[in-house]
Design a protein around this nucleic acid. Structure first.
Length: 847
DNA sequence: CACGTCGCG
DNA sequence: ACACGCGCGACGTGA
């Protein structure tokens, strides 16, 4: 007698899962899963478990409950037992049954979306979880062996792993390793002090509460007193009967009437390929007062338009036949201009096809999400749905994986369409919420007057790109490569061995073990070979100098010579990306390539800037703010002495030295000036005597004396900085002059190091953030003024406090005037903003 | 994928 | 006694 095959379905989690890909028919999705199992004769007994849902549900939760009820109604006709128990979630019921039945003559398969159930896997208990496979959605089976292989743990260890992952910075791999070593979380915390990795130790301390909370959430009750009525197996005849049946929703219990259906609308995604149907949607869309919209762009072509103007009106209009990409883009543009409020997810990415200008009534949900919480690493529709709609939706990866959208539309049309529809659906739903949240956070003005207009200016800058002389860059790289070869040989001679100089590990061993250079350990992984460590040794060991030179050259070669060359386009220009939603403080960041860290401090590196040139008939105008952060500090603190220092000042660092050390200005030595400058920087970064002493190579005592004297001289700065920390502790976030917020959760940490970091952040963010705000205002004004005056010159780069314009010769005077003027007047501070501007035939010359 | 290193403001 | 300046992104190594 073979063992009885019991299939237990987690009705609640599976309906939810199915709901998000088939909103109107979550129950139907699970139903077909069940009939499939029966048809393939994979079960002798079938049961489906449900959580007993409480009250106070969101719209979406109500929708899901309706689907759950439908499934409960269908279950008996599928010969499936319905399992419900008060006080237990569906996962608890299944966990209890798995435990109870594993000793009996039964093979149990649990089908669920709930990862927590993985911990119930055992010799005769298999857990199946829906996952994206090559051919779309599949059920992935986890047997006892699978789990041992995949995680290197017994199933019981998984709940520990899942709890640990709740901590930011711990991945699945790391968590598994920890549990393998310490068995469980309790053991982990017991041995915390003896742990090797400082990083992991800190994470565990910081997130202890979160981890323990997560452990509670993950816990499954296995004491549910429920039994299976499985004495009888499903017969062939019964299966045949089920197969012959044709289910129609009308057979479901609680048959709702039409008006009831209206009052709780069911979301549904529609796919449109027909021209006149598309026209009808456009017609309705253009008169809608708010909508979500997204052009789906792939390989520089519009492949679809996602548009949503109601819970039930969400459409994926595919680009085919009469509905060309251009046509869809044109319609989208028309709607953006004429309709009410349109929400999109990443406006900058849409602008190549959606030809809009600053001031259009379009709302970027991603940028709004960024303002509301700049610490997140993604503002995808999934993130926005979770944060502002309390909704869990399948991610891009879950729906289409790593392949292209167009590929998915062929292989798994339903998923492709779902993904496309979600873009506008979530945009439609969260537009109002985001706006409301911005209003509550008092960032509406910042959003409408700075962040939204900035999108167009950044787009303009990216589109312009910057010309780079390919040949000259190549020559530069070749020159470096020759020198690198030479240095390499010398280093091998001096050290007496051939090794990989680029490997800090090997380098450390050669220097400190083989050559016995004193300099001790520093990092967890071995010796530190960082430049500041090596510089101290360079005096006594000439080879170290060679290594430092080698480092510098290889850096220049790989990151800049070879690195940049890879980004030069067919137009001879580099079109980098300027990101608006990355930094915690409000700055812009630059990627692919990073054009904000092109060398300038060292002469050799600075040479690279010679390959950045204006196009024929143009010159570069470069303008940068002089000490904008310190000026912002003077203004925001209102410290009269610092403000006055600036009003009279040529050289602020010298004046600082003179005032702090009580000596006449003309007697300030260059060392004193240097120290004062470091203190000024330190203040802006959130001072600490330790940090300052490192930077100045003085003792901590001296450093703290400097700081003390500084604060005596500028008491307004002291009270301002203290106030920033206090306010941030109260509110949980730091605020810039223009209302930009940066949450500082570290301030609540019980860990001294974390908390100190939070305090420095609370002092630095408002300053760095305000400077960033001012630069953004300047950029927008400069960009818009150029366009408004019909000038062809364009901003091509922004480097935090610097703007670079490619100016047509005939526009040069106007551009110079306009650029400096807009930058100086971007903000009205107690201390006037100063700008240094230069003209040149390359970026090197213009700086 | 994490880490060390280093380029910029 | 401790331990770090603030904000980024790219590259190479090595598990």
């Amino acid at each position: 007698m073979s063992r009885k095959r019991i299939v237990l379905i987690d009705g609640s989690s599976m309906v939810k899962e199915a709901f998000y890909s088939l909103p109107a028919n979550g129950a139907g999705g699970v139903k077909s899963l069940m009939t499939g199992i029966l048809e393939r004769k994979e079960a002798d007994y079938l049961a489906v478990a449900f959580s007993l849902t409480g009250a106070s549900q969101s719209m979406i939760e109500k929708e899901i409950t309706i689907q759950e009820e439908l499934l409960k109604g269908i279950a008996p006709s599928l010969k499936a037992e319905v399992l419900i128990k008060e006080g237990y979630e569906s996962a608890d019921i299944l966990a209890s049954l798995a435990k109870k039945c594993s000793s009996e003559e039964r093979d149990i398969t649990i089908i669920t979306k709930d990862q927590r159930l993985l911990q119930t896997a055992a010799e005769h208990v298999t857990v199946q979880i829906p996952a994206m496979g090559e051919e779309g959605l599949i059920l992935k089976s986890y047997h006892l062996e699978t789990i041992r292989e995949e995680y290197g743990l017994e199933p019981a260890g998984l709940k520990e792993v899942f709890s640990l992952i709740a901590a930011d910075g711990l991945g699945e791999k790391t968590a598994c390793g920890l549990i393998r070593q310490y068995e469980n979380i309790a053991g982990l915390y017991e041995h915390l002090e003896s742990m090797e990795s400082q990083r992991i130790k800190e994470i565990l301390k910081t997130f202890e509460n979160r981890i323990l909370e997560e452990e509670k959430r993950i816990f499954l009750k296995e004491d549910c007193d429920i039994t299976l009525d499985d004495t009888k197996s499903i017969s062939e005849a019964e299966i045949q009967e089920i197969m012959d049946m044709d289910f129609v929703p009308a057979e479901f219990p609680d048959d709702e009437n039409q008006s009831e259906k209206e009052s709780s609308p069911t979301t549904s995604f529609h796919v449109i390929t027909d021209f006149s149907e598309a026209e009808a949607v456009f017609g309705k869309g253009i008169s809608a007062d708010r909508l979500g919209l997204q052009l789906i762009i792939e390989d520089k072509a519009v492949i679809a338009l996602s548009i949503c103007y109601g819970e039930k009106d969400c459409y994926c209009i595919l680009s085919e036949g009469l509905l060309s990409g251009d046509y869809l883009a044109g319609k989208a543009e028309e709607i953006c201009k004429k309709a009410g409020h349109v929400t999109v997810l990443d406006l900058k990415s849409q602008l190549p096809y959606l030809k809009l200008e600053a001031g259009s009534p379009v709302f970027d949900a991603g940028v709004a999400g960024y303002l509301l919480n700049p610490l997140k690493d993604s503002y995808s529709y999934k993130d926005l749905a979770e944060d502002y709609l309390n909704m869990t939706v399948p991610s891009r990866i879950e729906l289409i994986g790593k392949v292209s959208i167009s590929r998915t539309l062929i292989d798994n049309r339903e998923n492709g369409v779902s993904f496309i529809c979600y873009m506008s659906y979530i945009a439609f739903l969260c537009g109002d919420r985001l706006l409301e949240a911005l209003r509550e956070a008092e960032m509406e003005k910042l959003f409408h007057e700075i962040e939204m207009p900035l999108i167009y200016s950044l787009y303009s800058m990216e589109t312009a790109g910057i010309q780079v002389e390919r040949e000259r860059l190549k020559e530069y790289g070749d020159r470096l490569k020759v020198q690198i070869k030479e240095l390499e040989q010398k280093i091998y001679e001096e050290t007496g061995e051939t090794f990989n100089i680029n490997s800090p590990k090997q380098l450390g061993e050669v220097l400190f073990d083989h050559m016995k250079i004193p300099g001790g350990k520093k990092t967890k992984t071995g010796y530190s070979t960082a430049a500041d460590v090596l510089e101290k040794l360079a005096q006594d060991y000439p080879v170290v100098t060679l290594i430092l030179d080698y480092r510098q050259l290889t850096k220049l070669n790989s990151t800049y010579a070879d690195g940049l060359a890879a980004y030069i386009g067919p137009d001879g220009r580099i079109h980098g990306t300027f990101n608006q939603t990355i930094t915690a403080t409000g700055r812009i960041s630059s990627t692919e390539p990073n054009l904000q860290n092109i060398p300038v401090r060292m002469e050799l590196g600075r040479e690279i800037r010679k390959v950045f040139v204006p196009k024929e008939g143009c010159v570069f105008v470069d303008a940068d703010y002089s000490q904008i952060e310190l000026r912002v500090l003077a203004h925001m603190s209102g410290d009269t002495r610092l403000i006055n220092a600036y009003k009279q000042a040529e050289d602020i660092h010298a004046i600082t030295a003179s005032e702090v050390f009580h000596i006449p200005l003309n007697e300030v030595t260059s060392l004193q000036r240097r120290n004062a400058k470091a203190v000024n920087f330190g203040i802006v970064y959130g001072i600490s005597s330790f940090g300052l002493s490192e930077g100045l190579s003085i003792t901590r005592k001296e450093a703290s004396e400097y700081i003390e004297k500084y604060f005596e001289t500028y008491p307004g700065v002291k009270s301002f900085l203290d106030g920033l920390v206090t306010k941030a502790k109260e509110s949980g976030y730091a605020v810039s002059m223009f209302g930009r917020r940066r949450p500082v959760p570290e301030l609540k940490s019980s860990n001294f190091m974390q908390r100190s970091f939070g305090e420095r952040v609370a002092m630095n963010s408002p300053i760095q953030g305000t400077a960033a705000d001012i630069m953004k205002i300047a950029m927008i004004r400069v960009d818009q003024a150029l366009k408004k005056q019909g000038l062809k010159s364009r901003i091509v780069l922004q480097v935090h406090d610097e703007l670079l314009i490619e100016a047509y010769q005939e526009e040069l005077e106007k551009v110079k005037e306009l650029l400096t003027n807009e930058m100086i007047h971007a903000a009205d501070l107690e201390v006037s903003l100063e700008v240094e501007a230069n003209v040149g035939e390359s970026w090197f010359d213009a700086k």
